[in-house]
């Protein structure tokens, strides 16, 4: 298991208490699972994703990641409409482990309320939360 100082926690994303990350870019937000979460879950063997066009509110479950031992829910960091899902994860779910912020992204959305992003944790706040776990 990684120590907190060994975790890859980039500054260009925002984090949720459920360990998703969200990266804003123009009108879109890309969402994935943090390095902490993938390290806790272990090898991901399946990622269940929504359909483009589906609409979810902030905090809604939009999919699952499945490790060998357990199934974990994925929750929307911000509400919005699914624009794209990372179909590469269908054959290569291990991208979530290997590159959680790049090849392992899970969905891209059009946020309903972009201001919801401001309610998420920045890197410092997320690290503080992890230290309290």
């Amino acid at each position: 298991m990684k120590e907190i100082n060994e975790l890859n926690l980039p500054q260009d994303v925002r984090y949720t208490k459920d360990h998703e990350w969200a990266r804003a870019g123009g009108e879109k937000v890309v969402i994935g699972l943090s390095d902490y979460a993938q390290d806790q879950l272990g090898d991901i063997v399946f990622v269940e994703m929504p359909q483009p066009g589906d609409v979810f509110g902030k905090g809604d479950e939009f999919g699952t990641v499945e490790s060998v031992k357990a199934v974990a829910e994925l929750y929307m960091p911000v509400g919005g409409e699914i624009l794209a899902v990372n179909s590469a994860l269908e054959d290569t779910p291990e991208y979530v482990n290997q590159a959680p912020y790049t090849n392992g992204w899970i969905i891209e959305i059009k946020p309903s309320h972009p201001s919801e992003l401001d309610e998420l944790m920045n890197q410092d706040e997320y690290v503080s939360m992890l230290k309290g776990l």
Binding site: M1, K2, D39, Q40, G42, D43, V45, S67, V68, K69, E94, N97
Partner: peptide, 21 residues
């Protein structure tokens, strides 16, 4: 670097950094 968990009253490794697969 094992991911440890409680099992049967013992602290045991669930998997190592190379991954369970």
């Amino acid at each position: 670097g094992a991911n440890m968990a409680d099992f049967g009253g013992y602290k045991m490794p669930l998997w190592y950094p190379g991954g369970v697969k």
